[in-house]
Computed example of a mutant assay.
Amino acid sequence: MGPARHLRGLTALLISAALLLSAAIPAARGQEETEDEEEFNYIPGDANGPENWGSIKPEWANCSAGRMQSPIDLARERVSLVPALGFLNHSYRPAQASIVNRGHDIMVRFNGDAGSLVINGTAYDLRQMHWHSPSEHTVDGRRYAMELHMVHESAAGKAAVIGILYEIGLVPDPFLLRLEPFIRRIADRKDREEPIGVVDPRLARGTASAYYRYMGSLTTPPCSEGVVWTIIKKVRSVSKRQLELLREAVHDGNENNARPVQDLNDRDISLFRPKLHKQELLSFKDKLVGA
Rank of each mutant, 00 (worst) to 15 (best):
H6V: 11
L14F: 14
A17S: 15
L19P: 03
L19M: 14
L20S: 11
S22C: 14
A23L: 15
A24M: 12
R29T: 01
G30T: 04
D36A: 14
E37I: 01
E38N: 06
Y42M: 14
G45A: 05
A47E: 10
G49K: 00
N52L: 00
G54N: 10
G54Y: 12
S55R: 15
I56S: 06
W60A: 01
A61W: 10
Q69R: 15
S70C: 11
D73G: 10
L74N: 10
R76N: 13
R76Q: 15
E77H: 15
R78F: 13
V79Q: 07
S80K: 13
L85C: 07
R93M: 13
Q96R: 08
I106W: 01
F110Y: 12
F110G: 00
N111T: 15
G112D: 02
A114I: 03
V118D: 01
V118G: 00
I119P: 00
H137A: 02
H137S: 02
R143G: 09
M146C: 10
M150G: 00
S154W: 05
G157M: 12
A160L: 04
I162V: 15
G169Q: 08
V171E: 14
P172T: 10
F175E: 06
F182I: 02
R185W: 01
D191G: 02
R192W: 09
E194G: 03
P195F: 14
V198F: 07
A204I: 05
A210E: 03
Y212G: 00
V227M: 07
V227N: 02
W229T: 03
T230Y: 03
I232H: 01
V235N: 07
K240H: 12
K240E: 15
L243T: 04
L243K: 07
E244L: 12
A249F: 01
G253S: 12
G253K: 07
N256Q: 08
R259N: 12
Q262W: 01
D266K: 08
S270C: 09
F284C: 08
K285T: 09
